[in-house]
Structures are given as C-alpha cells and as structure tokens.
Design a protein around this nucleic acid. Sequence first.
DNA 1: CGTATCATTGAAGCATTTCAACTATTGTGG
DNA 2: CCACAATAGTTGAAATGCTTCAATGATACG
Lengths: 231, 231
Amino acid sequence: MQLAMETKSVDRRAGTRPVSMGPLFSPIGNPLAEMGSRLRFARNAEIYAEGDTADRFYKVISGTVRCCKILADGRRHISEFLFAGDFFGMEAASEHRYTAEAVGDAVVMVYQRNLVERLVERDLGFSRWLRAQVMDNLDRAYARMLSLGCKTACERVVSFLLDLVERTDCDEQIELPMSRYDIADYLGLTTETISREFSKLKHAAIIAVKGQGQRIEILDRQALSEMAATD
Amino acid sequence: MQLAMETKSVDRRAGTRPVSMGPLFSPIGNPLAEMGSRLRFARNAEIYAEGDTADRFYKVISGTVRCCKILADGRRHISEFLFAGDFFGMEAASEHRYTAEAVGDAVVMVYQRNLVERLVERDLGFSRWLRAQVMDNLDRAYARMLSLGCKTACERVVSFLLDLVERTDCDEQIELPMSRYDIADYLGLTTETISREFSKLKHAAIIAVKGQGQRIEILDRQALSEMAATD
DNA sequence: CGTATCATTGAAGCATTTCAACTATTGTGG
DNA sequence: CCACAATAGTTGAAATGCTTCAATGATACG
C-alpha cells in the first residue's frame, strides 16, 4: 500500500463541496473528524489490496476511488466508484475482499477500524448514521445488480450517466474521472461497446462529448431518463 | 399482502435445522424471539410488495423466499433467494424497494420495525449482530454483481449451485425449491440457457438431474469448483 | 384422462464481443 | 519546440454466446 501522509490541515478542495454526513448525522461536532488522517494517492495508486487486513476504513475527500477485483484469467470487475463524501473499506470479514485504487489523484481520510467500532458503541447517533450508510451501500448494490442482470448495453450506459449526475453534484456538465475501460468493467461491457453507446447518444443529440471523451454534456435529460429502463 | 396468522407455537420443522443467529449472537435468550409473529404463506404468495411501507422485517423459518422487481416492460429480476435462518425486509427507505414472495410454501417470522429499532438501541449485542447481518447481505450482493458483471452462463450456473450447497445445509443432494424461470431471472439468463447448462453439466457427469429437474446431485464437486471462476 | 405447467432441445436471430485498423491526445527525449 | 512513442478513444467487420422462437417431452392436477 503506497501512501503519502499529509498534515491534518483543513482541505481547501473539500470545502468547495459540502461533505454531508447524511440526514441522521450532522457534520457539526462530527466525532470522526478528530480520529482520521489525510492521505493523498496518485492516479492509479493502490489504497488497499484484496486480502489486506481490513483494519481501517476510509472516506473520499476529493477525487474518485474504484473498488475492483481481478479473476484468475484476468477479467476485471469494478464493484463501485466512490466520490467525495463516500465511505469505503468497511468489511464483514477481517480482510478486504476488493482492491481500492485512486482513479485520478485523490485525497482520502483514513480511520482506524477499532476506533470507529468503539465510537459506534458509545455514540448512538453515530451508530444510526453508520447503519444508514451501510444500508445506502446495499441499495446501490441492488441497483447495480438490476442493471447487470437485466439491462441492455444502452440502458446500462444511460443509467450510469444519470447515477453519476446524481451522486457527484454536477448538473448537465459531467467530467468523467474514469476511462472507458473503467466504465466497461463497471458495467459488465467492453470499451468498444461503451464507446459505441456514447456515439449513438451523441448522434441522437442526447449528449455531447468533448475533449478526449472525458467531458460529457447532457442535452436531453428527459430522453435520457426515458431510456434508463426504471420500474 | 395475503397472510395467514398462526399460533406462536414452536415450529417443529424449524427444529430439524438449527437456526443460527450468527457467531456474535447466541440463540439462547434471543431477545427477538418474544417479539415476532409466525406467518405461513402459500406457494407464490406475496409477503410484501414493492412500494409497501417497510414497517416490519422478516426471518425465514422454513421454505424459500424470493425478492424481485418487475420493470415496466415486464422484465423481472430476482435480487435474492432467502432460506431458513435468513433475514429480509430491512430497508434504508421507508418503503420496500422489492417485492417478496414465497417460492414454495413458506413460514416466516415477522417483527415490527420500530420494536427492532428500539432493541438495537438498547441491546449492544443485538446491534452488533444486526450490523453483521447487513454486512453479510452486502457481501452476497457484491458476489452477485461479480457473477452478473463478468461470468459466463456456465460459470453463473455453477456458482449458483455451489452457493446453494453452502447456504442451505445440504451436501451433495440439492432439492431446488425454485423453477428454471426463477433461476434465470436470478442469474440474468433465460430458462432455456439454464436448462442447456444443466444438460451440459449432466452430460459431463458433473451433476445428475432427477425428477422433474428439481433434484440435483453433485457427482464431481471439484470439477464444479474449478468451473466457478473464482479469484 | 385431458389440460396446464414446467423442462428440454433445436434452429435462427441478434446484441455484444473480438479482432483490427485508424485517430486523437498526452507525455518525453533529442 | 518538434518528433515520436505511448496511451486512450473511435469505428468497422467478423465471430460468438446467449436469446428468441418453436416444437416436443415429462410431470402434476382437477
């Protein structure tokens, strides 16, 4: 695990975006705040590896993190992308089941697991909030399963874009932090298919793709919503 | 929600299989035991529907439960199968996101959500145990995502069988409680594909299929494990 | 005993993948 | 600062794994 310890100074970038602790837990008097260390990771740096002892847990301050797993024959699966404000690294087991990596340069807070667990037992509000956090993760996991289990390539890409808009608080301009490969492994498709689906949406004037394909503008949000195959 | 209230008498069938509360929570002096009601559901009966108020939660005593969702165009997705001892119906939101149905005849315990939540805040051991329960759900959800995201039809079917052997405590003889349709919607495949994959495994002498396809015997467990595409 | 339901099997179709070529952008050393 | 290599994205054509459509077989049920 390659890491660069930073000073515990206030993160200026984090300040540009309110990092909500959720409705059940006010960031004022946040009992976690004092317990963590700030770490900075370079693009593609490993935060922890599959099999590492899961004795800490993490919160994204800035940048994007991906959790992934590689099968014996090289197939890769990305279980989650995590954005500013998201927590990750909590495990049922004592070892991490997935590898966590910085997608671009990223800053994360690290908390000792046993400290967090002690806090959970002392602080009822924190305990409620943490449970809500885990339940949200579960909800997202079920939404992903639905995508992977019964949606077409087009529907998956559209759902992905809409989810991204919701989770990172951008409106119509999306700055994709991850590559087509990452998106492919996240959606259970190939880079080529992702590229083709983006092209189709572009030609249908539903989105506009700028730069090296990293900047996406949503031109017709309603059309996009109607293509997402919700229930 | 069609239901038939039962007396709170001891479940003779449940007694044939120890219903563990997990390593962190002893069934002796189980504080939940006094709080629930036993309900019996007929094959395919709805336990709760998507959109219903999520004010209770459930535990399978006997039989199998499926959680599913149907998209606007009729595509169905099964998010989970639940077996004796499994809990379900806990939600982050105030409404159920999935519909729960009995696969065959099933008996479940029902608990009032607010009673459970009160117990969580009073009883530290119960709280720990419930958190572990949710984390286990999360682990299973990630394993499913991996299956749906990057495994072939054959690998999914094999993983499904192995998972079934692990979760229901049968050894080599599996009594499939669900139809090929259910398995298909669970694995993101079609009935025909499930059938074909079973046939392939049968012809390779890895499994034997008996009866109306409901009874499966594992003949070569090692071969099966090698085909599951684990990491 | 006929009807309904579920499982199996075959053949054709199709969505996505695989393979391959090309383009655009980024970084690097002369 | 330019040339060149390396990396990422796009697009086309062929291949393929799974689905769809269709028919048949097996089991349960009134």
